[in-house]
C-alpha cells in the first residue's frame, strides 16, 4: 500500500483497531474461561482436602477417646503408683509434651503411652557435670 489517500489511511486505522480489539477480546474470553475452569478445579480440590481433614480429625478424636479409655483401665489396674509422689501435674504435662515432640520427630504418627514418671536420681555424677560444663561453655576456653 503506497498511494496515500484518505480511504487507505482510514482503512489502516480501522484494520488496526479492529484487529487489536479482536485479539484482546479473544484473550479476555480465554483467560476468563481458564480462570473459571481452574477456580472450579481448585474448589473441588479444596472440598476434597477439607473432607479428608475432617475425616482425619474425626479419626484422631476417636483414637484419643479410645486411648484415654485404655489408659484409665490400665491406671485402675496398676493402682496409683504410675507417677512418683511429689512430681507436680505441671511437670508431668511438660514431660509429656517433650516426649510427644520427640516421638513425633522420630516416629511420626506412632501411638504410645507414658507408663510411668519417676525421678531417675538426685543430682548428677562428676562425669555428667563435666559433660554439661563442656556443652554449656564452649567459648570459655
Amino acid at each position: 500500500m503506497e498511494e496515500i489517500t484518505w480511504g487507505n489511511t482510514l482503512s489502516v486505522v480501522l484494520t488496526g483497531l479492529v484487529v487489536v480489539f479482536a485479539a484482546l477480546v479473544i484473550l479476555i474470553f480465554l483467560v476468563w474461561l481458564m480462570g473459571k475452569i481452574f477456580i472450579a478445579i481448585g474448589n473441588k480440590k479444596n472440598k476434597e482436602q477439607e473432607q479428608q481433614k475432617q475425616d482425619a480429625r474425626r479419626q484422631a478424636q476417636q483414637a484419643m477417646a479410645d486411648q484415654a479409655k485404655a489408659d484409665q483401665v490400665k491406671t485402675e489396674q496398676a493402682g496409683t503408683g504410675q507417677i512418683e509422689e511429689g512430681i507436680p501435674p505441671e511437670v508431668v504435662a511438660a514431660i509429656s509434651a517433650a516426649v510427644a515432640v520427640v516421638m513425633e520427630e522420630s516416629a511420626p504418627g506412632a501411638a504410645y503411652t507414658i507408663q510411668r514418671v519417676q525421678r531417675a536420681g538426685v543430682g548428677r555424677s562428676a562425669w555428667g557435670n563435666a559433660g554439661l560444663a563442656a556443652q554449656l561453655s564452649p567459648f570459655d576456653r
Binding site: V12, G16, L17, V20, F21, V25, I28, V31
Partner: peptide
C-alpha cells in the same frame, strides 16, 4: 481479564 480492553483502548493514540 477485562483489563485487556483498557490495554487495547490506549492504542488509540497509535492510530
Amino acid at each position: 481479564p477485562k483489563s485487556f480492553l483498557l490495554g487495547a483502548a490506549a492504542q488509540l493514540g497509535i492510530f
